[in-house]
Design a protein around this nucleic acid. Structure first.
Lengths: 201, 201
DNA sequence: GTTAGCATGTAAGGAGTTACATGATTTT
DNA sequence: AAAATCATGTAACTCCTTACATGCTAAC
């Protein structure tokens, strides 16, 4: 019945509010520069979603009525995460499943990699890569299946699409290598310092 | 009231059916390798849309019941464009407005560039380019506005996004140059042959 | 003869958008 | 004092998905 509340929006809002409490308008601005495509989310999506998160007890509203000497600055609602909201965010940050491989999901999860565990980061990067490799194969198949039968523009579209995906795979390869190196360094440092400790947070 | 019938789907279906009559299942396959993201359109979208196009008189159904010697191969509906459908497609092919600059619109219109007039092609390519240049500016602005205040992952996301958009701009530049060259050749050929003729179709 | 793929459809719902509506605050 | 921008919200609608339901045909 709750209309919204799933997909990437909830996650993005919780993630942003974890950095700092904010009001709706500011959240939208941050969202624009955060989301993969840099598209602006409409208010018609944003405010209902915030209300639902509030109704679900994940965020708290604070009506900013600090009339210090009469400068009553009403009508701004600052949201902050509740304890339950923080727990929910931690759950979402631990997710590394298929939902995090697709275009939208990956973009948002990557934006919050700074708050994500190293093992989850690697799972997401590798999942994303194999997802893109599937797409590469699909394009290549369409390529050989329809070659000769298509005009030069369709061919160029396929060629450019293929190149873009392959570039992103190379980008992911670099990131994965970098993550592995970081993990190895952490591992060896941990082994050097304390061999008995297991899975320290 | 008619649920669907706008956006890129109508255009893509009419464009595909202009190449050759087809049944729904085949249309979906062609669509998958045509649309920019190479995503598969669900049947739940496809069939209702075909029904609406039929109701609007743009396509004709032909129930494939050629029981040559009893091989009654029922339940396949082959669609083809009607005269009105062809006119509608020509209108859509002549469109070069803002709807053709965005991700979805551009992808589909580009796929049918082979059937598009040269001047419209150029308008679409240039519109798409300026659209992407706006996006470049937006990312760059977000870059300088938030630099130092963001973690390395967010920074890397912005950097990669910026690079991708800039690559597509360079691709468009090549295409535009190629179009201009083609137009010039056509122009000079036309001028050589018949100088008095103006705006021949 | 049963599984896999071809082929068509419906119902319900999810995730957003646009257009509308309101009012406060800052800038010109 | 007018215009722009900040700020919040609602209603209707769009486009698409998932899940369901059906039956035919080809392959193993």
């Amino acid at each position: 019945m709750g209309r919204n509340r799933s997909g990437v929006l909830e996650f993005a809002l919780l993630g942003l509010l974890h950095r700092a409490p904010m009001h709706g308008y500011e959240l939208r601005q941050q969202l624009s520069s955060l989301l993969g495509t840099f598209r602006a989310l409409s208010f018609g999506s944003l405010y209902p979603c915030l209300k639902e998160l509030h109704a679900a007890g994940l965020i708290a509203e604070e009506h900013e009525e600090q009339d210090s000497s009469g400068k009553a600055r009403r009508s701004r609602i600052v949201y902050r995460l509740t304890t339950e909201g923080k727990e929910r965010l931690q759950d979402l940050l631990s997710e590394g499943g298929p939902a995090t491989w697709d275009d939208d999901g990956f973009g948002v999860h990557f934006a919050f990699f700074g708050q994500t565990r190293a093992d989850v980061r690697l799972r997401i990067l590798e999942g994303r890569r194999s997802r893109l490799e599937e797409r590469t194969e699909a394009i290549r198949a369409a390529f050989t299946r329809t070659r000769e039968r298509v005009d030069s523009y369709t061919l160029e579209l396929h060629r450019h699409g293929l190149e873009s995906v392959e570039r992103e795979v190379r980008w992911l390869n670099e990131l994965i290598a970098s993550e592995r190196q970081g993990a190895q360094q952490t591992e060896s440092a941990r082994t050097d310092n304390d061999t008995s400790e297991k899975e320290s947070s």
